[in-house]
Structures are given as C-alpha cells and as structure tokens.
Measured scan of single mutants.
Amino acid sequence: WIARINAAVRAYGLNYSTFINGLKKAGIELDRKILADMAVRDPQAFEQVVNKVKEALQV
C-alpha cells in the first residue's frame, strides 16, 4: 500500500511521509489500504484528497 500511495502522490509533487503528515494536519482519517485503492480506482477523488493535504501543508 505504501508503494502505491508513494507513486501516486509523487505525481502531485509530494512524497509519502509528507502526504501522511498532511493527512493528519488536514484531519483526514482514511487508512492506507483505502488510500491505495482510491489512487488506482478513483483518481479524481484521490486528487481531491491530495489537494486538501496540500492546503493543510500550505504547499
């Protein structure tokens, strides 16, 4: 799951650890299995999560 998430978030200019930190700051409580599945099956929803994380990180 970690490898999938890392590959997906790198397309948005983040790395895995920064993304996970941003999830916590944004108050998003999705587990890694769901995030990895979302990255593959629903990229639009995953992009929305990434955008919320970037807002929380102020990137």
Rank of each mutant, 00 (worst) to 15 (best):
W1R: 06
W1P: 12
I2A: 03
I2R: 14
I2Y: 13
I2G: 01
I2P: 06
A3R: 11
R4L: 15
R4S: 11
R4T: 15
I5S: 00
I5Q: 00
I5K: 00
I5V: 04
N6V: 03
N6P: 01
A7H: 10
A8G: 02
A8Q: 03
A8N: 02
V9N: 00
V9Y: 01
R10T: 14
R10D: 05
A11L: 11
Y12T: 02
Y12E: 02
G13N: 11
G13F: 03
G13K: 04
G13T: 01
L14Q: 01
L14H: 01
L14M: 11
L14V: 03
L14D: 00
N15F: 05
N15S: 12
N15V: 12
Y16N: 01
S17P: 06
S17N: 09
T18P: 02
T18L: 12
F19K: 00
I20G: 03
I20P: 00
N21I: 13
N21D: 06
N21V: 13
G22H: 03
G22I: 02
G22P: 01
G22R: 02
L23S: 02
L23K: 01
L23E: 01
K24I: 12
K25Y: 06
K25R: 11
K25Q: 11
A26S: 10
A26N: 04
G27D: 07
G27Y: 06
G27V: 05
G27L: 06
I28W: 05
I28V: 08
I28Q: 05
I28A: 05
I28K: 02
E29G: 13
E29M: 14
L30Y: 10
L30E: 14
L30V: 11
D31R: 14
D31K: 15
D31M: 10
R32L: 15
R32D: 15
R32K: 12
K33A: 09
I34S: 08
I34H: 12
L35R: 01
L35M: 06
L35T: 02
L35K: 01
L35I: 14
A36I: 09
A36M: 08
A36W: 15
A36V: 09
A36F: 13
M38A: 03
M38T: 05
A39P: 07
V40T: 15
R41C: 15
D42T: 10
D42M: 10
P43D: 04
P43K: 06
Q44A: 13
Q44C: 08
A45H: 08
A45W: 12
A45G: 13
F46E: 00
E47M: 11
E47L: 12
Q48L: 15
V50I: 09
V50M: 04
V50N: 00
N51A: 09
K52W: 10
K52V: 09
K52Y: 08
V53L: 03
V53Y: 01
K54I: 12
K54C: 04
K54G: 03
K54A: 05
E55C: 07
E55D: 12
E55T: 09
A56D: 04
L57S: 07
L57P: 02
L57V: 08
Q58E: 11
Q58N: 10
Q58D: 11
V59K: 08
V59A: 14
